[in-house]
Protein backbone atom coordinates (compact mmCIF):
# COMPACT_ATOMS: atom_id res chain seq x y z
CA UNK A 1 0.00 0.00 0.00
CA UNK A 2 1.22 3.46 -0.83
CA UNK A 3 1.29 5.79 2.15
CA UNK A 4 1.44 9.55 1.57
CA UNK A 5 2.81 11.98 4.12
CA UNK A 6 0.90 15.23 4.65
CA UNK A 7 2.77 17.27 2.06
CA UNK A 8 2.51 14.64 -0.60
CA UNK A 9 -1.19 14.38 0.10
CA UNK A 10 -1.75 18.11 -0.16
CA UNK A 11 0.24 18.14 -3.38
CA UNK A 12 -1.90 15.36 -4.77
CA UNK A 13 -5.08 17.19 -3.91
CA UNK A 14 -3.79 20.37 -5.54
CA UNK A 15 -2.77 18.48 -8.66
CA UNK A 16 -6.13 16.82 -8.96
CA UNK A 17 -7.81 20.15 -8.46
CA UNK A 18 -5.56 21.81 -11.00
CA UNK A 19 -6.23 19.20 -13.60
CA UNK A 20 -9.94 19.92 -13.24
CA UNK A 21 -9.35 23.64 -13.62
CA UNK A 22 -7.12 23.04 -16.63
CA UNK A 23 -9.60 20.87 -18.41
CA UNK A 24 -12.35 23.40 -17.87
CA UNK A 25 -10.16 26.15 -19.31
CA UNK A 26 -9.38 24.21 -22.47
CA UNK A 27 -12.48 22.11 -22.96
CA UNK A 28 -16.02 23.16 -22.35
CA UNK A 29 -19.19 21.21 -22.57
CA UNK A 30 -22.20 22.50 -24.49
CA UNK A 31 -25.75 21.27 -24.84
CA UNK A 32 -27.24 21.67 -28.30
CA UNK A 33 -30.96 21.52 -29.07
CA UNK A 34 -31.32 20.06 -32.56
CA UNK A 35 -34.42 19.94 -34.76
CA UNK A 36 -35.14 16.26 -35.23
CA UNK A 37 -34.89 16.36 -39.04
CA UNK A 38 -31.21 17.27 -38.65
CA UNK A 39 -30.32 14.60 -36.09
CA UNK A 40 -28.17 12.32 -38.27
CA UNK A 41 -26.13 15.21 -39.65
CA UNK A 42 -25.78 16.74 -36.20
CA UNK A 43 -24.38 13.51 -34.77
CA UNK A 44 -21.70 13.40 -37.43
CA UNK A 45 -20.90 17.09 -36.94
CA UNK A 46 -20.66 16.59 -33.17
CA UNK A 47 -18.35 13.58 -33.49
CA UNK A 48 -16.01 15.41 -35.90
CA UNK A 49 -16.10 18.52 -33.75
CA UNK A 50 -15.28 16.65 -30.53
CA UNK A 51 -12.34 14.89 -32.18
CA UNK A 52 -10.97 18.10 -33.51
CA UNK A 53 -11.51 20.48 -30.62
CA UNK A 54 -11.48 18.38 -27.45
CA UNK A 55 -14.72 20.09 -26.41
CA UNK A 56 -17.73 18.02 -25.62
CA UNK A 57 -21.24 18.54 -26.97
CA UNK A 58 -24.46 16.89 -25.84
CA UNK A 59 -27.15 16.71 -28.48
CA UNK A 60 -30.85 16.82 -27.65
CA UNK A 61 -33.31 16.10 -30.45
CA UNK A 62 -36.87 17.30 -30.67
CA UNK A 63 -39.34 19.56 -32.35
CA UNK A 64 -38.40 23.19 -32.83
CA UNK A 65 -41.72 24.39 -31.42
CA UNK A 66 -41.17 22.47 -28.22
CA UNK A 67 -37.58 23.67 -27.95
CA UNK A 68 -38.83 27.22 -28.36
CA UNK A 69 -41.26 26.75 -25.47
CA UNK A 70 -38.57 25.13 -23.33
CA UNK A 71 -35.92 27.76 -24.06
CA UNK A 72 -38.44 30.49 -23.23
CA UNK A 73 -38.75 28.77 -19.87
CA UNK A 74 -35.03 28.62 -19.12
CA UNK A 75 -34.16 25.19 -20.49
CA UNK A 76 -30.43 24.46 -20.15
CA UNK A 77 -29.43 24.70 -23.84
CA UNK A 78 -26.47 26.61 -25.20
CA UNK A 79 -27.15 26.40 -28.94
CA UNK A 80 -30.33 25.92 -30.95
CA UNK A 81 -30.33 24.38 -34.42
CA UNK A 82 -33.90 25.07 -35.50
CA UNK A 83 -35.87 23.60 -38.39
CA UNK A 84 -36.96 27.08 -39.43
CA UNK A 85 -36.02 30.75 -39.27
CA UNK A 86 -39.00 32.00 -37.33
CA UNK A 87 -38.18 30.47 -33.94
CA UNK A 88 -34.51 31.50 -33.62
CA UNK A 89 -35.54 34.99 -34.69
CA UNK A 90 -38.32 35.10 -32.10
CA UNK A 91 -35.80 34.04 -29.43
CA UNK A 92 -33.51 36.91 -30.48
CA UNK A 93 -36.43 39.34 -30.32
CA UNK A 94 -37.27 38.10 -26.83
CA UNK A 95 -33.62 38.62 -25.84
CA UNK A 96 -33.07 34.95 -25.16
CA UNK A 97 -30.50 34.49 -27.92
CA UNK A 98 -27.57 36.39 -29.40
CA UNK A 99 -28.54 38.35 -32.49
CA UNK A 100 -25.10 38.34 -34.19
CA UNK A 101 -24.85 34.57 -33.99
CA UNK A 102 -27.90 33.94 -36.19
CA UNK A 103 -27.15 32.16 -39.49
CA UNK A 104 -28.63 29.64 -41.93
CA UNK A 105 -26.79 26.36 -41.44
CA UNK A 106 -28.71 24.29 -43.96
CA UNK A 107 -31.37 24.46 -46.61
CA UNK A 108 -33.65 21.48 -46.85
CA UNK A 109 -34.63 19.85 -50.13
CA UNK A 110 -37.98 18.22 -50.75
CA UNK A 111 -38.65 14.95 -52.57
CA UNK A 112 -41.79 13.06 -53.52
CA UNK A 113 -41.13 9.58 -52.22
CA UNK A 114 -42.79 6.19 -52.12
CA UNK A 115 -41.54 3.05 -50.40
CA UNK A 116 -42.78 1.19 -53.49
CA UNK A 117 -40.02 1.16 -56.11
CA UNK A 118 -42.53 1.31 -58.99
CA UNK A 119 -44.74 4.15 -57.76
CA UNK A 120 -42.92 7.38 -58.61
CA UNK A 121 -41.39 7.68 -62.07
CA UNK A 122 -39.12 10.65 -61.48
CA UNK A 123 -41.91 13.18 -62.13
CA UNK A 124 -45.09 14.61 -60.65
CA UNK A 125 -47.21 12.31 -62.86
CA UNK A 126 -48.25 9.98 -60.05
CA UNK A 127 -49.80 12.96 -58.20
CA UNK A 128 -52.12 13.55 -61.16
CA UNK A 129 -53.10 9.89 -61.38
CA UNK A 130 -55.56 8.45 -58.94
CA UNK A 131 -53.39 5.45 -58.23
CA UNK A 132 -52.46 6.04 -54.60
CA UNK A 133 -54.33 5.97 -51.29
CA UNK A 134 -52.80 8.82 -49.29
CA UNK A 135 -50.12 11.43 -49.56
CA UNK A 136 -48.34 12.39 -46.35
CA UNK A 137 -46.94 15.87 -45.83
CA UNK A 138 -45.66 17.58 -42.71
CA UNK A 139 -48.22 19.81 -41.00
CA UNK A 140 -47.81 23.21 -42.73
CA UNK A 141 -48.81 24.97 -39.54
CA UNK A 142 -45.89 23.46 -37.64
CA UNK A 143 -43.14 22.43 -40.02
CA UNK A 144 -41.25 24.34 -42.70
CA UNK A 145 -41.20 21.17 -44.83
CA UNK A 146 -44.99 21.21 -44.63
CA UNK A 147 -45.16 24.80 -45.85
CA UNK A 148 -42.90 23.86 -48.75
CA UNK A 149 -44.99 20.75 -49.52
CA UNK A 150 -48.12 22.92 -49.64
CA UNK A 151 -46.39 25.32 -52.03
CA UNK A 152 -45.43 22.45 -54.33
CA UNK A 153 -48.98 21.12 -54.40
CA UNK A 154 -50.37 24.61 -55.02
CA UNK A 155 -47.90 25.45 -57.77
CA UNK A 156 -48.71 22.16 -59.48
CA UNK A 157 -52.39 23.20 -59.31
CA UNK A 158 -53.36 20.08 -57.38
CA UNK A 159 -54.66 21.53 -54.09
CA UNK A 160 -58.26 20.53 -54.72
CA UNK A 161 -57.47 17.08 -56.10
CA UNK A 162 -55.24 16.14 -53.21
CA UNK A 163 -57.06 17.68 -50.25
CA UNK A 164 -59.00 14.48 -49.56
CA UNK A 165 -55.89 12.31 -49.72
CA UNK A 166 -53.68 14.39 -47.49
CA UNK A 167 -52.48 13.19 -44.09
CA UNK A 168 -50.34 15.36 -41.87
CA UNK A 169 -47.26 14.36 -39.89
CA UNK A 170 -46.42 16.45 -36.84
CA UNK A 171 -42.99 16.94 -38.35
CA UNK A 172 -40.98 15.65 -41.27
CA UNK A 173 -39.73 12.66 -39.28
CA UNK A 174 -43.24 11.39 -38.64
CA UNK A 175 -44.21 12.13 -42.23
CA UNK A 176 -41.37 9.89 -43.37
CA UNK A 177 -42.55 7.19 -40.95
CA UNK A 178 -46.05 7.22 -42.46
CA UNK A 179 -44.60 6.57 -45.91
CA UNK A 180 -41.89 4.11 -44.80
CA UNK A 181 -44.52 1.90 -43.11
CA UNK A 182 -46.58 2.22 -46.34
CA UNK A 183 -49.62 3.50 -44.49
CA UNK A 184 -49.37 6.37 -46.96
CA UNK A 185 -48.25 5.36 -50.42
CA UNK A 186 -46.76 8.76 -51.20
CA UNK A 187 -45.17 11.51 -49.20
CA UNK A 188 -43.34 14.79 -49.61
CA UNK A 189 -40.37 14.20 -47.35
CA UNK A 190 -36.85 15.57 -46.90
CA UNK A 191 -34.18 14.63 -49.39
CA UNK A 192 -31.92 13.94 -46.42
CA UNK A 193 -34.26 11.19 -45.22
CA UNK A 194 -34.14 9.04 -48.34
CA UNK A 195 -30.72 9.72 -49.85
CA UNK A 196 -27.57 8.55 -48.13
CA UNK A 197 -24.31 9.77 -49.64
CA UNK A 198 -26.13 10.41 -52.91
CA UNK A 199 -27.81 6.99 -53.11
CA UNK A 200 -31.56 6.47 -52.85
CA UNK A 201 -32.01 4.11 -49.90
CA UNK A 202 -35.26 2.46 -51.00
CA UNK A 203 -38.45 2.97 -53.02
CA UNK A 204 -38.88 5.50 -55.80
CA UNK A 205 -38.50 9.24 -55.84
CA UNK A 206 -38.94 12.55 -57.63
CA UNK A 207 -36.61 15.33 -56.55
CA UNK A 208 -38.90 18.36 -56.52
CA UNK A 209 -37.39 21.25 -58.53
CA UNK A 210 -36.36 24.17 -56.31
CA UNK A 211 -38.55 26.68 -58.18
CA UNK A 212 -41.67 24.88 -56.89
CA UNK A 213 -41.09 25.99 -53.29
CA UNK A 214 -39.46 28.77 -51.32
CA UNK A 215 -36.17 27.75 -49.70
CA UNK A 216 -36.49 25.74 -46.48
CA UNK A 217 -33.96 27.61 -44.42
CA UNK A 218 -32.87 26.17 -41.09
CA UNK A 219 -31.27 28.70 -38.78
CA UNK A 220 -28.90 28.26 -35.86
CA UNK A 221 -28.47 30.63 -32.95
CA UNK A 222 -26.31 30.93 -29.84
CA UNK A 223 -28.51 31.13 -26.77
CA UNK A 224 -27.89 33.45 -23.83
CA UNK A 225 -26.86 30.56 -21.63
CA UNK A 226 -24.09 29.59 -24.09
CA UNK A 227 -22.72 33.11 -24.42
CA UNK A 228 -19.52 32.45 -22.49
CA UNK A 229 -19.34 28.74 -23.29
CA UNK A 230 -16.32 28.10 -25.53
CA UNK A 231 -17.65 24.80 -26.78
CA UNK A 232 -20.90 26.42 -27.89
CA UNK A 233 -19.37 29.16 -30.00
CA UNK A 234 -16.67 26.83 -31.35
CA UNK A 235 -19.34 24.34 -32.40
CA UNK A 236 -21.22 27.04 -34.32
CA UNK A 237 -17.96 28.08 -36.03
CA UNK A 238 -17.35 24.45 -36.96
CA UNK A 239 -20.85 24.11 -38.44
CA UNK A 240 -20.12 27.19 -40.60
CA UNK A 241 -16.65 25.99 -41.69
CA UNK A 242 -16.04 24.39 -45.10
CA UNK A 243 -15.55 21.04 -43.36
CA UNK A 244 -18.88 21.41 -41.57
CA UNK A 245 -20.63 22.43 -44.79
CA UNK A 246 -19.27 19.40 -46.60
CA UNK A 247 -20.64 17.14 -43.88
CA UNK A 248 -24.01 18.88 -43.98
CA UNK A 249 -24.16 18.50 -47.76
CA UNK A 250 -23.32 14.81 -47.51
CA UNK A 251 -26.53 14.39 -45.51
CA UNK A 252 -28.63 15.82 -48.31
CA UNK A 253 -28.92 19.47 -47.34
CA UNK A 254 -27.83 22.47 -49.36
CA UNK A 255 -25.58 25.12 -47.85
CA UNK A 256 -24.57 28.66 -48.76
CA UNK A 257 -26.86 31.06 -50.59
CA UNK A 258 -29.28 29.64 -53.20
Amino acid sequence: MVVFNNWQFIGLVLLTGLSFVRSSIDADEATIAVASNFSAAAQQLAADFENKSGHKVNLVFGSSGRFYAQISNAAPFDVFLSADQQKPLALVENELAIKDSLFTYARGALVLWSADSEKVNNSADVLRSNSFNKIAIANPRLAPYGIAANEVIERLGLSNDLSKKMVLGENIVQTYQFVATENAELGLVAYSQVFFTGQLSAGSVWIVPEELYDPIRQDAVLLNRGQSNKAASAFLEFVKSPEGETTIQSFGYRTGEP
Binding site: G65, A90, N139, M166, V167, G169, E170, Q174
Partner: peptide, 26 residues
Amino acid sequence: VLMIGGNIPGETRVVSVQIYDHVEAL
Protein backbone atom coordinates in the same frame (compact mmCIF):
# COMPACT_ATOMS: atom_id res chain seq x y z
CA VAL B 1 -53.46 9.13 -31.84
CA LEU B 2 -50.36 11.06 -32.73
CA MET B 3 -48.74 7.93 -34.12
CA ILE B 4 -51.64 6.57 -36.18
CA GLY B 5 -53.92 9.58 -36.66
CA GLY B 6 -52.39 11.69 -39.41
CA ASN B 7 -54.04 14.82 -38.00
CA ILE B 8 -57.12 14.94 -40.26
CA PRO B 9 -59.72 17.53 -39.12
CA GLY B 10 -63.02 15.92 -38.13
CA GLU B 11 -61.55 12.45 -38.51
CA THR B 12 -58.47 12.03 -36.34
CA ARG B 13 -57.59 15.47 -34.97
CA VAL B 14 -58.77 15.12 -31.37
CA VAL B 15 -58.49 17.73 -28.62
CA SER B 16 -55.16 16.52 -27.22
CA VAL B 17 -53.57 16.68 -30.68
CA GLN B 18 -55.14 20.09 -31.27
CA ILE B 19 -53.57 21.37 -28.04
CA TYR B 20 -50.20 19.95 -29.07
CA ASP B 21 -50.49 21.69 -32.44
CA HIS B 22 -51.37 24.99 -30.79
CA VAL B 23 -48.32 24.73 -28.52
CA GLU B 24 -46.02 23.74 -31.39
CA ALA B 25 -47.34 26.63 -33.48
CA LEU B 26 -46.67 28.95 -30.52
